[in-house]
Each structure stands twice: as C-alpha cells, then as structure tokens.
Amino acid sequence: EKSLIASTLASASPEEQKIMLGEWLFPLIQAMNPTLASKITGMLLEMDNSELLHMLESPESLRSKVDEAVAVLQACQA
C-alpha cells in the first residue's frame, strides 16, 4: 500500500499531489475531530508531502499533528 501511494503521487503534478493527500487524510482527521477536520486538513497540507505521507502511514504521528493543529486553531480563534 505504501508503494502504491508513493507511485501514485510520483505520477501526479504538485497540485494533484496535495489534493490526493488531502483526500486520503481528511477521513482520518474527520474521525479524530469532526468539527475542525476541514481546517486541520488544510493546515496540515501546508507541510511537506513527505511528512504527509509519513502521517498516512503512522496513526500516532497523525494524531500528534492533529493535536498540534487543534491547539493552534484554538489559539487563533481565541
């Protein structure tokens, strides 16, 4: 599955790569935080694709980044 994701990304344009990563990450993030999922996904997509791939492969990594993103968003909205 990992190589499929990597090879799929390698054949896509930078714009398509971000969209694909967003489509893959969004349902995972939505399961963790339904309310802020759209903003969290948008925020995480500003990171390098290699980091986003790592998050797709590592639920622990994704969760910690989601927690960070939630903290930043709440600080912005306060």
Binding site: E15, G22, P27, K39, G42, L45, E46
Partner: peptide, 22 residues
Amino acid sequence: GSSINWPPEFHPGVPWKGLQNI
C-alpha cells in the same frame, strides 16, 4: 475581531484554496 481566512479549509471533492500558495 475580524474573520480569519487561515488555514484554507479542505473539503473532499472541492478545489483546495491553499493550492494558490504552492
């Protein structure tokens, strides 16, 4: 205060505004 436009929200199936910054 004023509304915050960051971060650009991602919605599946919808073009992502954040792409303008790449």
